[in-house]
């Protein structure tokens, strides 16, 4: 690795850490700007009880003290107790949710990548034929459909009308529909991306040279064309993971998947502030790290690229 790449990676790392810190600080101050604080809610409680609660959770101390205490806690992965689910720690709830969500997200991402690249390459190689047209029309439709609409429609068709797949994400095979919902948009996007970059590469001189030398067709496609046309797909890796994380918020809601996304949404509805802060910070860190990985991979694969 050349020194330029290394210095780029270091710069990128610093920006990532800084971004996570900004997210943390924003989250902290936004949550503390809520008038009345976390205990003003549905039930009216006595002044004394409220003060006792505030003392228990350290909310009576000055804001700056609270900020540094919480920062220290978060660095040590202590996110405090859930305010609504009595007796449970935020970190435990999140760890439980992450197990399911990670399964959902990883499978969706891998499927989107594999299917997207295969379809995109096929469309590029069969350019302007009927299969190509069909692929393009379908992917255009998928790209313009919000994930919650897609999820609800799949739910209506497969779980309610046809009754072939379970609607509840917690049951056996229940993750099939959520995975399909989450993968369709990135798959469509990757298909279009691969197709256009593959068409680009197929028009390059070195492909013609390889053909002229008599390199077998399969070797041209896999050794030259596909390898080079995957570079733009790498840049999409970060945005794709961000899409899957935010998409999982609604998809887990629709299919009642017991994941971290549903925990986040219900913590917003219940005004469980400790939980909201913890989940936002964890999910944001996840997205920032994925973007970092994607940018670094891009740089390592093709050192000619200069990113700023």
């Amino acid at each position: 690795m050349n020194p330029k790449t290394i210095s780029y990676i270091i710069k990128r790392l610093i920006l990532a850490v800084f971004t996570v810190w900004v997210v943390f600080t924003l989250t902290f101050f936004i949550m503390h700007a809520v008038p009345g604080g976390p205990f003003v809610g549905e039930k009216a409680i006595s002044k004394a009880a409220q003060q006792a609660l505030e003392a228990k959770y350290g909310l009576d101390k000055p804001l700056s003290t609270q900020y540094f205490t919480y920062l220290n806690d978060v660095v040590h992965l202590r996110f405090g107790p859930s305010l609504k689910q009595r007796g449970r720690m935020v970190i435990d709830i999140m760890a439980d949710g992450l197990k399911t969500s990670a399964k959902l997200g990883v499978v969706a991402a891998v499927l989107a990548l594999v299917v997207g690249v295969v379809l995109g390459a096929a469309a590029a190689l069969r350019r302007n034929t009927i299969p190509d047209r069909i692929i393009m029309v379908i992917t255009t439709a998928f790209v313009s459909m919000p994930s919650f609409i897609m999820g609800s429609l799949l739910l209506v068709i497969f779980a309610i009308k046809l009754q072939v797949l379970p609607a509840n994400g917690a049951s056996a095979g229940g993750l099939i529909l959520p995975i399909i919902t989450l993968m369709l948009y990135p798959m469509a996007y990757i298909t279009r991306l691969t197709r256009s970059s593959m068409l680009d590469v197929l028009g390059q001189d070195y492909i013609r040279t390889a053909k002229a030398k008599g390199v077998p067709w399969g070797k041209i496609i896999f050794g030259h064309a596909l390898k080079n046309s995957l570079i733009p797909v790498i840049t999409y890796f970060g945005p794709m993971m961000a899409y899957i994380v935010t998409g999982s918020l609604v998809v887990e809601q629709i299919f009642a998947v017991p994941g971290i996304g549903r925990a986040f949404v219900s913590s917003i509805i219940n005004r469980d502030y400790m939980m909201i802060m913890g989940t936002t910070i964890v999910l944001a860190t996840l997205i920032v790290v994925m973007n970092l990985v994607s940018d670094i991979m891009y740089k390592v694969v093709d050192p000619r690229i200069t990113l700023e």
Binding site: L15, F18, I30, V34, A242, I268, I276
Partner: peptide, 26 residues
Amino acid sequence: VDVIYSLPDMLMVILLASVLREPLGK
């Protein structure tokens, strides 16, 4: 701009939307 750009926008939007509605309503 760089920092705002690298923020996970949807999460921040959800966070802001959930916090802003009450004080704004008043």
